[in-house]
Write a protein that binds this DNA or RNA. Sequence first.
DNA 1: ACCTAAGCGGACGGGGGCGTCCGTTACCGT
DNA 2: ACGGTAACGGACGCCCCCGTCCGCTTAGGT
Lengths: 210, 210
Amino acid sequence: MVTDHLPHTLRSDALDNRERILDAARALFSADGLDVPMREIARRAGVGPATLYRHFPTKQMLVAEAFADQLHACRAIVDEGCADPDPWRGLCLVIEKICELHARDRGFTEAFLSTLPGAPDVAGREYTVKTVAGLAQRAKDAGHLRPDFVLDDLILVLMANKGIHATSTATQVMASRRFAGLAIQAFEACPHHAPLPPAARLASAAPASA
Amino acid sequence: MVTDHLPHTLRSDALDNRERILDAARALFSADGLDVPMREIARRAGVGPATLYRHFPTKQMLVAEAFADQLHACRAIVDEGCADPDPWRGLCLVIEKICELHARDRGFTEAFLSTLPGAPDVAGREYTVKTVAGLAQRAKDAGHLRPDFVLDDLILVLMANKGIHATSTATQVMASRRFAGLAIQAFEACPHHAPLPPAARLASAAPASA
DNA sequence: ACCTAAGCGGACGGGGGCGTCCGTTACCGT
DNA sequence: ACGGTAACGGACGCCCCCGTCCGCTTAGGT
């Protein structure tokens, strides 16, 4: 489901290992973030380090493949939000779902926010961002989203959501849900909203820190 | 200014080194977070590793000393907020200032949120938290803070603020400022606020993850 | 000026992650 | 069944960090 355009023919055991590696990677990335040692992924997958490196020469490639599904989910969520006749409701839905997605998967957030070294784009990230921008504009026009909302505010919320950690996944998701609720509250147009400090550019030109 | 109750007499050069180590630690912690290698702190301070370990046997001790000032600043901010006759304005002030403080100092956030291993309390953290709870209650009673606000929401905001990263300190502070603005917006009592998802317990019993 | 002990820092052994090489295994086409 | 080769994985050398030991330096009292 991930990528069918493999280098044509791959031996059956190799393909099996590949899948097992991806499974292991997904599990570990989700639970512990992206800094798990490659070795550990290999160990969990039941293969040697060499095999892992053969299939995925760099961690970024592994990450990209491992989170392909999540990224599709992300796109799906955005598309679903855009499909909603009420753009504000659609936007809220996007915020909630995306926050939950990120809460459930620690590594994905890092990958999505390009905390990765060079970050040669984690696939459809750009598309997703742009599409949601349209949704936001419509919500704004409809008068439900505050006029001074900026797309970077969404990035801000995403980054912020990333900062939320808890001991268990359940708690994490709960916290993220509440956070999303607060964010929505902050974004909703309100007759007497204070002018809000200026936004900072975070989105585009940021290859991230570490 | 940090601690004058040193083990009675300390040789002048030793005391000098101690200060230089603390300066280096502050600089590095602020810029890069708490995971900078001890070696690097020593290098920057111009001392050998042994000297550093002699003065601060464990990283936690170093962290505790290094951030003593920040913690005092934190308390000062909270006290200032409490002193404000308008509790809501006081609370807003606290949120804004604390966010900025944390934005300017990457390591402090980690230290404050007990991302530290065992976290034997980073000094007056408890006090600070409890004091601000009182302030929040008053703001709530005054009808300016939403009634379903919980103290954990503040922790949430702090953790979230920690997630915000930027390339430069200036951008970081700007982003944090806007975030604080949004948070305040979310906290403000509003006639038609949606019921908000339930809060998660984050504050007390969390010795943190890693 | 001298002597003593407080203080210093280079050097060490241990541990862990990294990415790669190469002898061995086992898939698959004939 | 068998050969060739794709694929495997243990083992290697590298680097960085950790915390400590011990011979040397130097402050500071007399």
